[in-house]
Every structure is written in structure tokens, then in C-alpha cells.
Design a protein around this nucleic acid. Sequence first.
DNA 1: AAACCTAACAACCGCATCTAG
DNA 2: ACTAGATGCGGTTGTTAGGTT
Length: 374
Amino acid sequence: MGHHSCCNQQKVKRGLWSPEEDEKLIRYITTHGYGCWSEVPEKAGLFDLYLCNIPFPDAKYILYEFTLLAVLCMLDKLHEAFFQYDNVLVPNQKGRFVVMLEAGLQRCGKSCRLRWINYLRPDIRRGRFTAEEEKLIISLHGAVGNRWAHIASHLPGRTDNEIKNYWNSWIKKKIRKPSTSATTRITTLPNDHPSQFGYSSSQQDFLNNQDFAVKQQVPQDAIFSTNTSSPLFMFDTGSIEGSNGDNTIGRTEFLHESTELNTDTWQVNSHQQQVEAFPSQASFTNNTDSSYNLPPLTDSMGPMDAHSCNNMNMEGELGLECFQRQDLINEWVETQYPSYLFWDSADATLGGEEINVPNSSNIGAIISSYPSSL
DNA sequence: AAACCTAACAACCGCATCTAG
DNA sequence: ACTAGATGCGGTTGTTAGGTT
């Protein structure tokens, strides 16, 4: 008890999250939503969402094989993967491509959950607390004590961890240093107030110093709303399109990609609440970047083929166009990675056996599985 | 410039609670 | 009803950036 089982794994990474890890987690969650955090680490492979829903084995890298057409459909993304993550795109002699994808996160599910909730969630509100938020925190803390999650539920975009840190650092300090005038002003409080809200005398000092209207008792109904139909959080499309913060800009790029794939509602907790987690595609009508024209993800989607390509809203000419680009992609692979050997026996060597990829010092590939449907 | 201090915040730990089998 | 695993929550620690001496 106590330690989550997934945290006992030997190779679980600890400490600060890298941008790459964040990206993996964001991509996974924005596509699949979250339901079972313990599954997230192994499933949060980089391109799972673009390719197919295949369980990730316990290996650092995973091998997929795709038709040329599928590869061409994914070309933009594979380019990106190629350059950013040292993945490998190698055509074999059968006209099929082997795509090597970095496997999941070396984190425990608990860590993934915390990272998402406290940092990566799209509706997170960063920056300093406003005076209104500060007052609300003080008020709620007086009412419910250290129930940070409860307090956070009344401050949209703020996390319990953030509020807790804020309280422990800043507010506590303020309370510890009441002004000399506080003792006189506190007498204006109703006699029953301390017991009603559980404020300490020092807290009352602070509230008085802040000219906070604690004289007006906050109705308990207002604090403890039982309206469970209110969403846990709502996605603020305005903040995204506005891109008014550094973090927002970077995250928006993810969301632009993900919204093409996910317009479903999210099941956000065990009470079956569903919220519109991300804006509809219509929210991004200004986005004309063709690189975002990715295929829709379906649960049953296997490695893409010509049929799935036709489902990608790319019209009939696509197939021909794709094949016309075959020379281009071959040329591209040879130009960019002349030292890579073309893999011409993938079919024979896959299927559970370990395969050492030639010239792969930066890959270190161990292949333990590949899609059975291939 | 270096050492030290401090605030802010990210992440971990352990316990409580929930839930599915 | 019981149990094991999963998740939620609060306390605590670790890390880092910025300020001060």
C-alpha cells in the first residue's frame, strides 16, 4: 500500500520532466483522453495517435511496417519524427516501409497524472494569483482548511498543488506578519465568525489587513456548490487562439494538431462528467497549414493502407499523387541518410526477435514486437 | 565572481478512498 | 463481503532561478 505498483518498476524515471516527455504525454492524452493512468506510460508512444492503436511492448523502440501509401500520408509527421527523435524511415525491397518509433514514457502512471494535472493540462492558468483569487483562497481555507483540492475546484485553472505552494510560501508569511492596526480592526468581526470559518487570530489579522469583506459571511452553499453538472474544467478557446503567453503558444501547436483528431468529449472523472475538453475543429478554421491534415484516428485503425487513405478526406487523386511522390521519398531517404542500409528482410526478421538495426548508434534498436496485422 | 540565501514551484511519498472482479 | 489495484489528496522534499552580500 502507499506506493503505487507502477512506481516499483525498475526503469521508472524520476525528477523533472523533459520537453520530449511532456510532448509524448500531451499527444497521448489529447488523443485518447485519460481513464487509466497506469496504462499511459506504455501507451504514450510518440506517434501512436497517428498510426494505430497497438499496445506498446516493453521495449525502447517499436517497429511498424507500412505501405508506401500510408507512409506518404504520414510523411509530414515522419519528417518531423525523423529529425527530432532519431526515428528511422527505411523502405525495404517489397515497397513497404519500416517505421521505428520510440516507445512509451519511462514514468509511472502516477507521475504522468501529476504532470498532466499540475502542469500540462490545457486549461491550466499560470502566473501570479490575482487579488480576487487570493481572497477566495483565504476565505475557502478558513472554511475548509487544508483541503487544497476542494479549494482548487473553486479557482478555475488553478491546481491544488499550486494553491498549496502559494499558501505555504506567500500567504502564510503574510499572516505571520500582521500589522499593528490589525488588533483594533478585528473587533469589527462578528463574534461568531472565528468558529464559523475556523480562522485563527492571525488569519483574521491578515483578512483585515487586506480589507477583505469577511464581515459578510459567505453562504456555505456558495462555497460548497453541489452542482455536479458544472464541468471540472472548460477549455478556453480564447486563450488558445489569443496565444497570450509563451507556454500557450507552444501548447497551441499541439492542440492544433490534436483537435483534428479529437473532437470527442472527455470523460473526466468517475462521475461520468463529460466536458468539451477541446474546441471543435471549427475553432481553428484559420489554420490552413496542410501539415495538419492528418487522418482521423479510430479505435480499429490498423496500419494505414489505400483504403484508410481514402478516408482521410484527401479525395481520389491522392493515391496517384502519393505514388508519384515515391521517387521523391526514395531520393529524400538516400540524400538525408546515405549511410543507412535499406532493410530488405523486415518481414522475415520481425515477429518477436530482436533485431539490430544497422548503423544505429543513435537508435540502439531492440525490436520485440510489431503489429500482427501486417 | 563566488558564495550564500530565499522564494517559487515541480515532483515525490505515503495514506485514504474508490472500484472492479 | 473481500481484495487488489488504481486513483486522489495532502504533506513534504528537492530543485532552480534570482537576489544579496
